[in-house]
Amino acid sequence: MIARVIGKATLVFCAACVLMPLLWTLMNAFKVNADLLTPVPKFVFEPTFDNIAYVLSRRSVFGALYNSLIICLSAVGIGLVLGLPAAYAIARYPNRITREIQFFVLSLRFLPPVAIAIPFMVIWLNLGFYDTRLSMIVTYSLITTSIAIWLSIPGFQSVPKEVEEAARVDGYGPYAVFFRVALPVAMKALMGALAFSFVLVWNEFMLALMLTASNAKTLPLVASEMSQQGLNVPWGILNAAVVLLSIPPLLLLGLLGNFLNRAFAQKRR
């Protein structure tokens, strides 16, 4: 019984380890420096909205937010258009070739980002597309497509074959089966895969650092730049930038939790 109490206490402690630093950051976003830079942490203070206002008023932040949205959504869109059909083909036609393809797609994740970032930089410069949203979308679609394929295969595998058979008996061709049957049935699982790929590129840092200079800069870069400016910049502003950057991935929390539940519920069967 005592063990159980200790166990529960440990769980609560772990949850606090996750939530405390984040709540602390959120609080700091509403503090002035005098409340922030105190030897004893301050929990009661008079909130200020100047930090958030400053962050939102910077042209660089606004531009980066726009860039991040355009680049990430487009890359996820490409991942969807190219990745889902490929994942379906791999799921429905299991043979030696598709297994190799599946492994190839996974092995793309083995590539160290630095190994592709340096040459990509030179390539985009030579082509005249360096520091453009287009080049970032193309580069990121490498990530989104491979992740979308990898994570959607189980989703398509979970579509009962009988359902597809029935559709085929009704006279659907293989493409119609994909678009009208497999895709809608697997949709919920696929949303999670796409959400994961969105989070990955939204959070991506190293490629963005090397492949953009100013026009196509993404939000993680601007947040990191702000956080590196030193004490000359009020720390509250940095906290506000961090909060802004973290919101979109956290909005997807429910979707991703669901995706995991579904993935493992399927395993149980």
């Binding site: 420096n33 005098a34 105190t38 100047d50 930090n51 502003i237």
Partner: peptide, 11 residues
Amino acid sequence: MVKHREEYLVK
């Protein structure tokens, strides 16, 4: 204590 520089800036 560091003064309220942001507030000051805004004013």
